[in-house]
Computed example of a mutant assay.
Amino acid sequence: MSDFAMFETSHCNPNVDDGRPGRAHRVLRDANLERARGTASVVFNSAGSVTRIANLYDKFPTRIMFPRIAGDAAIEAVLVNAAGGIAGGDRFELDIIAVDDARVAMTSQAAEKIYRALNEPARINTRLKARDSAKLAWLPQETIVFDGARICRQIEIDLHPGAELIALEWIVLGRAARGEEITRGYIRDSWLVRRGGRLIWADSFLVTDSTIRHLSRKALLSDRRAIGTLIYCAPHPDRRLELLREVAQSRQCDCAVTMVSGLIVVRFAARESADLKIAMIRILQHFDRELGPGPFRVPKMWLC
């Protein structure tokens, strides 16, 4: 057990004694505290060129909002965490399904913050499904990880061969402007992508208490504090591979583009989150220009 999971309390617990007369302590765990259990599920379909909400369910503290964007055929949905952040032991489940000819962009209201845990990681599971000729964009704002935070996040993507999808996740290790340093914690960020029921890509980023102090090595993250992964899947992704490689070049951000099993994967790494955001905006602006009106663009919430 980590040393920061042990706290001195004024409550007497006869089953746990530190050996000193008149003093007792107990182990405070995340499971002993009130934890958030957020759930949301939304299904989008279409009627002609109009995208509609076919089904919606959300449970506090998770909410899905639909701001009005005039003259837009695509829906931009906004995920809200009313708890104001995520801590150890929290659980969040999200399902986004787009069918028919739906055009959907899902983003988040603000940067998500992962706070210090006692002994248990927060768990976030996101499942994205795009069927038929749907276009789905998962473009949340950054996830800020604080010192001592523990998180297991998994993204599962299930695609029909005719569907098109962009999905993004990015992590910021502490806020550079406030001089925050990450000295301990646990981060597991996993991806599973299936197309036509077949697994085409699996990826995982893992940091633990024992390895986090080595991230500054040149072979690992060097002095990069913000990292991100963007994937793009479409019936003919090879047409955009070279163009994306040209657009991805930025002096403020390290960026590389490759293709795996017909899936374009873009990796980002930057010293500060602002530099990373500039690079991502450039990539999304490229999609907006090349693909025309639709969900593959810079979300309006990013500009608020």
Rank of each mutant, 00 (worst) to 15 (best):
L118R: 14
R153I: 04
P140A: 13
R131C: 12
S133V: 03
D147S: 11
S133Q: 08
F146G: 15
A130N: 10
L118G: 13
A130Q: 12
F146Q: 15
K135R: 15
A134H: 01
R127N: 09
R123I: 06
K135P: 06
L118A: 10
E142H: 12
A137P: 07
T143H: 05
R127E: 08
A137R: 11
E142L: 10
I151D: 01
V145Y: 04
I151R: 03
P121V: 04
R131V: 06
E156K: 14
P121K: 12
K135M: 07
A122H: 08
W138N: 13
K135C: 05
R127L: 00
I155C: 14
R153M: 12
L128I: 06
T143I: 10
E142R: 15
R123K: 07
R131L: 14
D132G: 15
E142N: 10
T143K: 13
R123E: 05
I124Q: 14
R131N: 14
Q154K: 13
N119I: 01
F146V: 13
L139I: 03
L128G: 11
Q154V: 01
Q141M: 02
T143P: 05
I155L: 14
E156A: 08
I151F: 02
I155S: 15
G148L: 06
W138E: 08
W138D: 12
I144T: 13
P140N: 11
E142V: 05
E120T: 10
A122Y: 05
Q154P: 09
A122N: 10
R153K: 14
P121D: 01
I124E: 06
G148D: 07
R123F: 07
K135T: 02
C152I: 04
R150T: 01
A149K: 03
R131F: 07
L136W: 06
F146E: 15
A134L: 09
N119K: 13
I155W: 02
L139F: 00
R153V: 01
L136T: 11
L136A: 10
C152M: 00
E120H: 11
L139A: 00
N119Y: 05
K135N: 11
